[in-house]
Design a protein around this nucleic acid. Structure first.
Lengths: 192, 192
DNA sequence: CTTATTTTGTACCCACAGGTAAAGAAATGG
DNA sequence: CCATTTCTTTACCTGTGGGTACAAAATAAG
């Protein structure tokens, strides 16, 4: 009952995600959001409650699309080292191909809001946990298949891969070309 | 000639650095700066020109104090692996001991401003270059001393160490304890 | 002591961030 | 077709971000 929405809330959250991803939280204004979502300010506040609540939804959407896609890529079948190389290589490629060089929204959010926004910090923390878990499964698989020495601490390797991945995506924000990033991948694979 | 300044500009830039480091660029207001520096708004704008110019000076100061200290720590004498462990270990310790969990200002700036602020991006890029160069020298030394296999690509290893370091400091912003960070260090040392 | 130069404090300013209020429009149930 | 509910539009509002203007104060040079 009542008047139906004139816009698709999911599509609106998607647009909001794009804006927050590109500009960050503090630098995004209500006007930016109104312009990007193509709806009136009234509708925006009626539907989402406010800037922070919308950001939260945008970040969840990022988790359910981008972060999930990364995990699924790690979990694909195939030789472990090759999979890792393809995954990291694709990240670098996409990051550098992006004209806005937005990097990873989870990483950017950690850097911008971890100190002041407990909700955002928590969401990011959990995304990192999931990614690390995927890396850990990958390492375990590599150890069973003989691609990675069973002597090495799988948990520690998974944490290292997470750190390297996070570092890669942050370096991509200021990189002038692929060289350094490619070297990171090369050395990481060689280190397993 | 003319009336002398009533405050120490270096001390003021130091305070500004602390504020920007803690809150980020966009979230820092002129009022925050006036409060932290303990000078009037007139003096602030007369002496520094504006928020962005002051931020630039604060970031340079960060480079000349914090980032330089890291490079110097990497360059200290002693066994290579031990030095690396101590350096990364100290970073983690300091990051976790900081009640505000500010992490690394260069990393935070890369995440917040790389897309929109060419000056800041350039400063950060150069800090990363210097840190990588220090890592590269460290790796070369390790290869000459036999601590690191000469078969490995020193440049690639240096890039990987930079990426891991950057990742570590970002992970520290959302970490709930030292465990994951310690594992990153452990696996990194074991990977050389 | 005067003049020229710089700093400082106070007052002021405009745009916009972030959001609220209220009235009208579009649905649905009875 | 009336009542109710929800969405939309437009108007409005307060606080503050980021900065400027200006007079008064403090120096140094001559």
């Amino acid at each position: 009952m009542g008047r139906p929405k004139q816009f698709d809330p999911d599509a609106a959250v998607e647009q909001a995600m794009q804006v927050f991803w590109r500009k960050g939280y503090a630098a995004t204004t209500p006007q930016d959001l109104v312009d990007a979502l193509g709806i009136g300010k009234g509708s925006l506040y009626n539907a989402f409650g406010g800037k922070h609540a919308l950001f939260e939804r945008a970040l969840r959407r990022y988790r359910d699309s981008q972060a999930l896609a990364l995990v699924e890529m790690i979990e694909e079948p195939g030789p472990v080292r090759e999979r890792l190389r393809r995954t990291l290589g694709l990240l670098v490629e996409l990051d550098l191909a992006d004209p806005d060089r937005r990097g990873c929204m989870a990483v950017n959010t950690a850097a911008e809001l971890a100190g002041t926004d407990e909700i955002a910090a928590d969401l990011v923390r959990r995304m990192f946990d999931r990614t690390e878990a995927a890396f850990r499964a990958l390492v375990g698989e590599g150890q069973r298949s003989g691609e990675i020495s069973p002597d090495r601490d799988a948990r520690a390797l998974a944490s290292m891969l997470l750190s390297t991945g996070v570092g890669l995506r942050l370096l991509a924000r200021v990189a002038t070309g692929p060289d350094r990033l490619d070297r990171v991948i090369e050395a990481t694979i060689d280190s397993l």
